[in-house]
Design a protein around this nucleic acid. Structure first.
Lengths: 335, 335
DNA sequence: TTGTAGGCGTTATCAA
DNA sequence: TTGATAACGCCTACAA
């Protein structure tokens, strides 16, 4: 392992460590051509590799950022993380990826650990449950960006999508197709994203005179969704359209469909708020609200690195537009 | 951040840095109850946090491992990485996750970077194209484990599945259902995994007297698979069964099916060598060869950490069994 | 039982 | 133009 140090190079080249350091940091300005050559040669010959840890200690900068993702099994998180990683690596910043499983304890543990490791900044899909910890970051002027979710209690910029408007739009799409019993299916309302989506749902329903939707809102942990679906579809007036809150919820809908031998697009219309790589390939194809995950990740990384390099950089919330892609699962006129 | 140092604690407690260090490393043996208490108090009061970077520099150990995954868009990689992360984090080791996109240049760059960062060990899904770099790791006795793929040119232990036997088995399953024209569809044969699967295919076909399979082997980059499928299905004797080499290949098959308006399980039988979270939920359900990704990741992490803690630990290749799960896409008798 | 001193490999400051 | 020298924060002999 990198056991050749600057001192070795210095000795071999017959100069001092400082000079080698100058050389390595491309400060040739006041360096004779001769010494430059000498050092260059020895660096190559000895196969010198700088020691990042030592440099980090001195510079108080690690060229690493931490990403705490919501759930690695969630496609959106994966896509965003990948974008972050791509951007960072181009800029020679390494990413430590942590999977919090939407668990506040894990989240806190990871934030603390990453700080101890002196990562230069953090991108977090916040659970929202660690306000104290978030606030500490703000107080220390630590570079942090929230992804996908806003935590209003704390002044940290967030990169999100227009959850409310997009949901409003897809509900309107259902209504335009004459649906009246439209259900929304989501994981518990612990994060802003889900709340906003529900809000969009409510507003859209209300705006179109469909105020009787209380029993059509299902918000429950993933593993109980199936039971809720069974129940709601046994009601006197079962829903005719369904909005699945994300890809994991969608899988539950698939299970339900399978168990009950129903046909999507025939027995009820369906839209999914998320990116599904195979949305277009199923039969019927699935209507989705696609989130620009890659752009969001890139933007987060870009802003974070900027902020790291300039503590005064002011970052504000950023809202990305989703795209409603209507496909076979919801294109039937329901009259 | 963490600007309280051991020196601060020492001063506040009226002891020396060494004593504080002793305390922090739980070496209370020769410490008076009194000083212990004093230090404990000050650590709490000042909110002291150890500096990992400084510790790493001194100890030449970072408590970080690097993972170079093949392709973050590939479900199997994701599942394995998650398992590695889970195991490592329980053991207070952090994971730097890098996505090589099956690109040898990226792979090499990442390996080099991770070494500069002095990660304690590496788990790599090797492209197989950087033998020189791999060999360097071996020469330095650097802890490395290969995942999913073997590189025969170099003596690094690999954790794999029984690719050949599993493929043999699924082909036999097709044959048992009276298929004679069985095609295999895989990405280019650059890695051992794919080669072994093809080998299993060949042996199984041959063993059952189906020697005329040359035109039934499609091995091509993802984005050209569709064209190959079109072609092979236009042949005089199109295949009646298809083995898709992984989940990404499967998506291409779905595209093909969609374009051609075919029905899986009716127009041809299908099996997929990989984990599909929704295999059971499609119509028909998809026959898969499931890989124990989580166990593989856990094992890799476990072995790596063991090896890191004991340079003499000898690790050997490890082969995991897959499970052939027969579902609707291939359960039809083809006579 | 506790403290002193030196070093891990860099970088930064200042003097030469 | 280059070189001493002192940090960075921690750990570890060894000394007291």
């Amino acid at each position: 392992m990198a056991r050749i140090t600057m001192a070795d190079v210095a000795k071999a080249a017959g100069v001092s460590k400082s000079t080698v350091s100058q050389f390595l940091n491309q400060r040739y300005e006041y360096m004779s051509e001769e010494t430059r050559k000498k050092i260059e040669l020895e660096v190559k010959r000895l196969g010198y590799q700088p020691n990042f840890v030592a440099r980090s200690l001195k510079q108080k900068r690690t060229a690493m950022v931490g990403v705490i993702m919501a759930n690695i099994m969630h496609r959106f998180s994966t896509e965003v993380s990948r974008a972050i990683e791509d951007y960072c690596n181009i800029n020679n910043v390494h990413v430590i990826l942590c999977n919090a499983d939407d668990n506040p304890h894990k989240e806190k543990k990871y934030i603390d650990m990453l700080l101890l490791r002196q990562v230069d900044g953090l991108i977090v899909f916040p659970t929202g449950e660690n306000v104290e910890t978030y606030q500490k970051l703000v107080d220390e002027r630590y570079p942090v960006i929230f992804m996908d979710r806003k935590v209003t209690a704390v002044d940290i910029p967030a990169i999100m999508v227009n959850n409310k408007a997009s949901t409003y739009q897809v509900i309107e799409h259902f209504i335009a197709n004459q649906h009246k019993r439209i259900a929304i299916l989501t994981e518990p309302l612990t994060i802003s994203t889900r709340k906003s989506r529900l809000e969009g749902y409510r507003e859209s329903m209300t705006a179109h005179g469909l105020t009787n939707y209380q029993d059509l809102i299902i918000s429950a942990p993933i593993d109980s969704l199936l039971a809720h679906l069974e129940q709601i579809f046994q009601a006197e007036q079962p829903p005719t359209a369904l909005l699945a809150g994300n890809d994991l919820v969608f899988l539950e809908v698939l299970k339900f469909v399978k168990t009950e031998q129903l046909k999507i697009g025939v027995d009820f219309s369906l839209a999914v708020f998320d990116n599904l790589p195979f949305a277009d390939l199923l039969d019927p194809a699935i209507t989705t609200i696609a989130q620009p995950s890659y752009q969001m990740g890139q933007q987060a990384a870009k802003l974070l690195l900027k902020r790291i390099n300039n503590k005064n950089e002011k970052i504000t919330d950023s809202i990305h537009e989703c795209e409603l892609i209507i496909r076979g699962s919801s294109n039937r006129y329901w009259a």
